[in-house]
Simulated scan of single mutants.
Amino acid sequence: MNALVDIRRLRRSFGGPAVLDGIDLKIAQGEFVALLGRSGSGKSTLLRVLAGLDTAPAQKLEIPARRSVVFQEPRLLPWKSVIENVALGARKPDARALAGAALADVSLSHRRDAWPLTLSGGEAQRASLARALVRSPDLLLLDEPFAALDALTRLRMHDLVFDLWRKHHPAILLVTHDVWEAVALADRILVLDQGRFSHEIRVDIEHPRRRGDPQASLIETGLLRELGVELSHV
């Protein structure tokens, strides 16, 4: 595997038991990886290290320089228009033109001059995604970006992220609590438990993946069990 991300023996603690306890992680160029785990398992800590927002000792820590993050909250600056917010991610002389193209990618051109506070939740998250994509990242980090959205908007965002991934083909690490979201989108799913990877599975199912597909349902049920959830009707 041609690894874009290569981490070995990564450890992070905050004065108590290790939040990340000597983990190894490789992500290939263009691979879509989902990360599941209970609250407090270390998912967001790992993402922050990959984003360069936190430091941690490791035997090896290779992360591409071009990387972007989309958080659960859009984090748009309310005093700047949508296109100005997106252009902040480009950091280039032609930032505004790049921002316009990124907004077109997420079907938000018609809101380019709007103020962030006038956007719906789905529109604000699309603007945040455009701001991340405008840098043409090699690694796109998604930290539960759909958690605050209603169910229908979340499904639309799934389709949008998949289409953008297929078009631009960055490596993606998606941190999520939604097991179906991981099954629907990812090539590979990791489960983090007490600072270590406790489970890994490849999802070799063609897209689009639909609930009710026997293979997808089997993977979803197995992952839920790994997370301590037993379904009485299964």
Rank of each mutant, 00 (worst) to 15 (best):
M157R: 05
V5M: 07
T118Y: 04
R211W: 01
Q59M: 06
L25F: 08
T176E: 07
V5G: 04
D54H: 04
V82W: 01
G195I: 03
V19W: 00
E84T: 12
L46N: 01
L103W: 07
K60H: 08
R156V: 04
D113P: 00
F32L: 14
L108R: 01
L155D: 14
R196K: 14
S136Q: 14
L47K: 02
D21Y: 04
S217A: 14
K26V: 08
E206S: 15
E31C: 08
R91M: 15
L117K: 12
I23T: 03
A28F: 00
L20V: 06
S107W: 03
A184K: 09
D54R: 02
R211A: 15
E84M: 09
S41P: 04
D94R: 11
R9K: 14
D163Q: 14
L61G: 07
W165R: 15
R66G: 03
K80T: 11
F14P: 02
N85S: 11
W165T: 10
H168L: 11
V191C: 12
G30L: 03
R48C: 05
R48S: 12
D6E: 12
L160Y: 04
L103K: 08
L139T: 05
R154Q: 05
K167P: 08
R12E: 04
A182K: 06
D138Q: 13
P57R: 00
K167Y: 05
A87E: 02
H158V: 06
P57W: 00
L88W: 01
S13Q: 12
H233D: 11
Q59T: 10
A18T: 10
E123V: 02
S128M: 07
G22F: 00
D204P: 00
D163M: 07
A101C: 13
S109D: 11
L149Y: 05
L155M: 15
D113K: 06
A99E: 07
D159R: 15
F71I: 12
D193A: 12
D54F: 05
D204N: 15
A58W: 04
V229L: 15
G30R: 06
S136C: 08
M157G: 09
P74L: 03
A104R: 14
T55I: 03
S41W: 01
A186I: 00
R11C: 10
Q194I: 02
A216L: 13
I201M: 14
R126P: 04
E31F: 03
A56R: 02
K167M: 09
L77N: 12
F32G: 11
P116M: 05
D150N: 09
L190V: 06
V179G: 07
E220T: 13
R9N: 15
G212D: 01
R209G: 06
R154S: 10
A102K: 09
W115K: 12
G212Q: 03
F146K: 06
I83K: 05
K26I: 02
E123D: 10
I205M: 00
E31M: 09
L185D: 00
P57H: 00
